[in-house]
Nucleic acid binder design. Structure first.
Lengths: 213, 213
DNA sequence: GTTTGTGAAGGATTTCACAGCA
DNA sequence: TGCTGTGAAATCCTTCACAAAC
């Protein structure tokens, strides 16, 4: 993109592009597991249902990873993208809310293989605090800040009922957390420096019904 | 928008707009439950962290619901949007995959109050078929097509492991389902007439890490 | 005075189309 | 020949700004 060096640090990459990179990583991993060494933007596009041009443009924000006439080396591209996304290391997370939803989230086997480790669980309910759930001893939320520091926790997962969600998110923010995965159905109030991503299946259903007639 | 009548049927509403409508509905419901009768686009914007202009523009795709100098009647706007989205009726769903994830989904108490009723559960595993889970007798997937017809099921929820997801989605499509809520981590192959929405917390985490340094 | 509804402007994102390289 | 990388064009989406309505 810029040609004074090989770093693109002055360019802000659009957030839509960042949200697509994990899709590329996923397909590249699958593709290399099937023994393929090279992939073209066209093949990637077919697998992801997007245009080859978009994939090439997205990748061009970060460098020139392909070879003309050939395509991309699957392993190298995967590794580059993992580094760009910060997926070349593990990330520690804490979950707040150990009701039905929280229990389902901690027992979901999809996080750990991707390097996301839920190291601590919290709840306000005194009946739940102290219980052992999926190998985690549930702590009182009053211990959140010290636990975050002690275990180098960078991600907060919110699985409390909506009435408590904003309060819990405020507590996470105060404890220094900058990234929140939110399962409660609200648009939380957070400082601009904090990133919230919400998982909201009801919203998905409610927009799908528009097209169902 | 067009001024020959009051119908905007020839205009295609952008999908981004449709995806925001459920947010408006949610806030309007909360706002009316607190006893408010009128809301302005500015108030809505503050609650949803978006600009008032965007909200007014979004609503203008469907009609003129506000009163200048006053704002929007909360109850009327909520009702109009529910009708537009098809939320003025209930929708029947079936879930396929009754492992840990499927059990969590059927026991999630957030669907039914919004009019999404999971009426049937399926699995391929013979140990699970026949079990009673959250009041649903798990059926064999071979009964999917007849059950879809019998119970007027319009939505398929996919909570099987990734290896079986595409096959299950093919089966749903063959049975006539046009709307799929997918919890498996893949970009499924479906005809253009079928709508798939994926819930993928790992993708969310993997893009958040880009900003965590 | 207040707030909507909306053309027009501005900004962001996607796609095109092709030079350049393997 | 085949495919990338990328300016330019096209498209899509958001914001502005103000006339009109209450």
């Amino acid at each position: 993109m810029n040609s004074n060096g090989n770093l693109n640090t002055e360019l802000v990459v659009p957030e839509v592009v960042i949200r697509r990179l994990p899709l590329y990583v996923r397909i590249l991993t699958q593709f290399s597991n099937r023994g393929n060494e090279v992939i073209s933007s066209e093949q990637l596009g077919l697998l992801l249902h997007m245009t080859p041009a978009q994939i090439r443009k997205d990748l061009s924000y970060f460098g020139r990873f392909g070879k003309q006439g050939r395509g991309y080396d699957v392993t190298i591209l995967e590794q580059k993208l993992r580094t760009i996304l910060g997926l070349d290391r593990a990330w520690n997370a804490a979950i707040i809310g150990m009701g039905r939803l929280g229990r389902a989230v901690v027992s979901y086997p999809g996080f750990a293989p991707e390097g996301f480790n839920i190291l601590a669980a919290f709840d306000t309910n005194e009946d739940i605090v102290g219980q052992n759930i999926s190998g985690l001893r549930v702590k009182s939320i009053s211990q959140l800040a010290t636990t975050v520091k002690k275990f180098d926790i960078k991600i907060g997962i919110v699985s409390v009922p909506i009435q408590h969600a904003q309060e819990v998110i405020d507590t996470l923010v105060k404890s220094g957390i900058k990234s929140i995965l939110n399962y409660a159905p609200l648009s939380p109030e957070v400082p601009a420096s904090v990133n919230v991503n919400s998982i909201d299946p009801v919203l998905s259903l409610q927009s799908m019904t528009y097209y169902m007639k």
